[in-house]
Amino acid sequence: MSKLQILTKGIIKENPSLILVLGMCPTLGVTTSAENGIGMGIATTFVLLLSNIMISLVKGVIPDKVRIPSFIVIIATFVSIVDLLVQGFVPALAESLGLFIPLIVVNCIVLGRAEAFASKNGIFDSMLDGLGMGLGFTLSLFIIGACREILGSGAIFGHKFITGDGILIFVLAPGAFFVLGFVMALVRHIQNRKKSSQLEKR
């Protein structure tokens, strides 16, 4: 696999939340607006990138049996760093993301990439993989956040373009499930069509 492929596979082909169905909790929980989605995405990307680098550096030193606990401690350390940074520099974002920043520790994407990729590959490849997966996650959070913000409050990035209220249900809890369900179905539909057109060519 070329370097570029490692970077781009996480963005579309193996998008963590829309295709691999990992990290559902933040995908549903923080996407009330496009801005929150991007903020959460960047925080997760940061943790993914650093933990992937760190784990691929120490992979030779850690005995196989205590692998998972060690990974969790490494990830938890970076999550604490991000948590404190966000609280210190962007308190408004910390307020709206709340509990979901410390919960990056138990986000299956981070541990999944550590186990499936960083513990087997070199440092540069792991870095690209972490970055790609993080960007893919950010992209899907942005799409879902934007859909919910446009439908729910008739605004994008906080700029209102309609008068009055939007369809309130999309900002509330049920809307998260609906939007994610339909976005996921759309992605699968496109994939299915691509597959069948490839088959026809043969």
Binding site: I169, A173, P174, F177, G181, A185, H189
Partner: peptide
């Protein structure tokens, strides 16, 4: 269920309706 909705997507929509009931 339509092909693209099979599995997780339709489950999410169902969960959404359930969440409405819980509201």
């Amino acid at each position: 269920v339509p092909n693209a909705m099979k599995g997780v997507p339709i489950a999410l929509v169902t969960a959404g309706i359930l969440a409405m009931a819980f509201m």
